[in-house]
Amino acid sequence: MRNEIPLEENLNSGHLACPGCGGSLSMRLALKALGRKTYLVLTACCWSIIDGPFPYSAVKIPLMHTAFETAGSAASGIRAALDILGKKDITVMAWAGDGGTFDIGIQALSGAAERNEDFIYSCYDNEAYMNTGIQRSSGTPWGAWTTTTPESKGEQKKKIMEIMAAHRIPYAATLSPAYPEDFIRKYKKAKSIKGTKFMHILSPCPPGWKTSSEQSMKLSRMAVESGVFPLYEIENGTKYTLNNPTADFKIKPINEYISMQGRFRHLNKEQIKFMQENVTSEWQRLLRKLKYA
């Protein structure tokens, strides 16, 4: 099989991510796919630290740090400037965490998507506010421990992909750094499409998930295989394509994925069963969308 991962590196070593950070590997892959003709917008999140302090920067492309809730709006401004200055060939990518996307930044994101602004919006979802020390977000899954859900989170994870699909943007996809070919292909596809593209990346976080750093890729794979985080694409908000590597539309049980993570350690059998039922029903819902799209 031909290796489809570009050799080009646009993320230097020496950045400040924790070992096993899914967010840094995801950025590395995204920048390989997009290349150097890319302007990057980063909101407040782990990545505002990962890139390094002034005067350093770990990426080889121009980078604008911006306020927590402004990925969608700041990227819109850059796009407008590039268009009026005749630099239409530059790709703009906004990059934000789940907090910056599901919570505080959803207004600016929704505004940009409604206007169908021409940029790629990437959400690396580590399922909590990690920069500030593991607080729950609306992207945190049911049952997870965080410092602000000291017992267990009682609410379900927000269905961000459905929200984005409801905007009928030309392209939305889920991605996992454990599937680099799929990852690269999706970013290349996003780059070739005009309008708002939304990339939802599940990004393991060893300190936040209470996992050991060498297990991040295994966890990523298990999230996909168990249907906790299936890989799919949505075109124009309605056409769903499943890219899950699982055969025959089958998913594996979530038990092992859950048991490997300290943030779920407190859950009893009953609760894990409840989680499994949820994952299964969401999976079936996704399959129905595939059929009827």
């Binding site: 402004t70 850059i78 407008a80 400037a81 207004q107």
Partner: peptide
Amino acid sequence: KFLKVESEHSVMAASIGASLAG
């Protein structure tokens, strides 16, 4: 380019992005 953004917070964020991009 006239950007009809969805709030004043976004107005200033977009203006900052535009200015930084030249």
